[in-house]
Amino acid sequence: MSSSSKKSKTLDPEKGQHLFYQMLLIRRFEDKSAEQYTKGKIRGFLHLYVGEEAVAVGVIQALTEEDNILSTYREHGHALARGMEPGGIMAEMYGKQEGCSRGRGGSMHLFDASRRFFGGNAIVCSHLPMAVGMALASKKQKKNQITCCFFGEGAAAEGEFHEAMNLAALWEVPVLFVCENNQYAMGTAIQYSHAVLEIEKKGAAYGIESTAVNGMDLMAVMDATDKAVDKIRKTGKPYFLVCNTYRFRSHSMFDAELYRDKKEVEEWKKADPIPAFQDYLLKQKLITKTELEKISARVDKEVQEAIDFAEAGTWEPLEDLTKFVYSEK
């Protein structure tokens, strides 16, 4: 892809290795989370991001610390890519008060106001209007700040998607809509939920510049996002980026995957973004085998430390049950 070759000129070893580290961290964090779920350490719903890592990592690298991020209930990857502590995330999923949302949210509600990470939103599409509102605030406050909002293709069938797109375009606010099209809204394949399969075409109805990109290709996602972010910063207007991707694991841990063929999953796994990016880094001599091993060891260590942190965490006392309903005066 021409965009990838262009990008390779600017990708230095340090950044390349960092992005590889982030993707590997997400992958192994998620695998470990699944394990902890089967052990009963994590309860509730657990939606894993395995297979989609290139999207979170490729998009978030283009943002600054001042930018806002809102995500869905499949948000562990975004939280990690934003630099949130793996320990705080794991402790949250354990329900411990050392968790990033003090254990009140769980897997679907990761928050970190200090990193401008605003969830962890589990009503499909309901965070899109909020994202538009945050971008409206940035505009009113004359801040050079983008609000980046992740959602799935399932959300694009909701009325609020259309309301939010219209409002963002009408008000000309700096929001980056990122649709992670992983082909399935829970168990319903895109052809059964969308009359028009090219989700990016929906942006045109609102006059929003829109692009689709191969979400399994980190370099392509980076390139597309860099351009989108440049555009938003220059124009102050919204942008719609569709990343076509695939989740390798089930929708949630309750899912028996009756709705898709194992062959289809195997086919997509051939496009796994992590080995692909690893090969790329090796070919471009941006990483050595020794460095790869070091990253792998670091990731294993950090994931284990996250587990240890969560295990050592404490339960919030029962007396605190009704805290955080209203602000403390």
Binding site: N68, F118, S126, H127, L128, P129, M130, A131, V132, G133, M134, A135, L136, A137, S138, K140, Q141, T147, G159, E160, E163, A164, N166, L167, L170
Partner: peptide
């Protein structure tokens, strides 16, 4: 003035409030 999008503009009000405004 806002379009007829009650969910949209109330949600936007919530977002703006989270980001430091008083809508």
């Amino acid at each position: 003035d806002v379009p007829l999008s009650e969910s949209g503009f109330v949600g936007a009000g919530i977002g703006a409030a989270m980001a430091g405004m008083k809508p």
